[in-house]
Amino acid sequence: MSQKAYSQGSTFPATKPGVLRIYSMRFCPYAERTRLVLSHKNIPHEIVNINLKSKPDWFLALNPLGQVPVLQIDDKIVPESTATCDWLDDVYPENRLQPADPYRRAWDRVYASYNGSLLSNDPFELHTNLEGVKKHLQFFEDKLRARGDGPFFGGSKPCIFDFMFWPTFVRLPIIAIIKENPAANIDENEFPTLETWAKAMKELPAIKDDAFDVERHAIFFRGHVKGTPDYDMFLDE
């Protein structure tokens, strides 16, 4: 199946019985969360990318909000990144990502909510208030250090929140590039626990297989800001 994004007027790509599908967009941080969980848990799936500026009618029929990610298998449809990640962990319980401790699981939900405030309603519009960004990072620095069983928020192994936070964290340096402000770069000496976490995350096969580097994210982001995002960027390389 082509990685190119399906747009308005395209024909619905027929599903196959029993085959899990994710409707995604290659640069979307929310869809990236779900793709990372799929990859980390080695769940067989196919990917259908969507042009979010010119959404196909058949995609809007699946999710009237017009947002990715959306999971589909047979007659089951699950939208939204948190719901899709939790559903995948419940339906495919091997290599469990949700903490067994209810208290820890509850706090992971709190972390996810706080992480969400780093992104506006537009998933690519990062806050440019550096003090606000650093306040969020300090929160996660302190919480991860307090858990004390790292390097991951899940301890010796990643949990769902690790994959929820990563797409946000990896996009923060875009501020430094777009605003041409080196001060926006994350100082590893200021957040040493998060730096150790980031190094451990980068070694995970799911991260290596899915992630773009910050420069490519910035190239896409510039097009998005101008209203001309290229959803098929870099596919011809």
Rank of each mutant, 00 (worst) to 15 (best):
V37R: 01
V37Q: 10
L38V: 06
K41D: 12
P44D: 14
E46S: 13
E46A: 10
I47P: 05
I47S: 11
V48C: 14
V48H: 01
I50G: 12
L52S: 12
K55R: 15
P56E: 09
F59Y: 15
A61Y: 00
V68C: 07
V70L: 13
V70A: 10
L71M: 10
L71R: 04
Q72H: 04
I73A: 09
D74W: 06
D74V: 08
I77N: 08
I77H: 04
S81F: 00
S81Q: 06
T82R: 12
C85G: 08
C85N: 12
D86I: 14
W87L: 04
W87Q: 03
L88A: 02
D89H: 00
D89A: 01
V91Y: 02
V91G: 00
Y92K: 07
Y92S: 02
P93F: 11
P93E: 11
N95L: 03
Q98K: 12
Q98P: 00
A100E: 13
P102Q: 06
Y103D: 07
R104C: 09
A106N: 05
W107N: 13
D108G: 11
R109C: 06
R109W: 04
Y111R: 15
S113V: 12
Y114I: 13
Y114M: 14
N115Y: 03
G116W: 03
S117C: 06
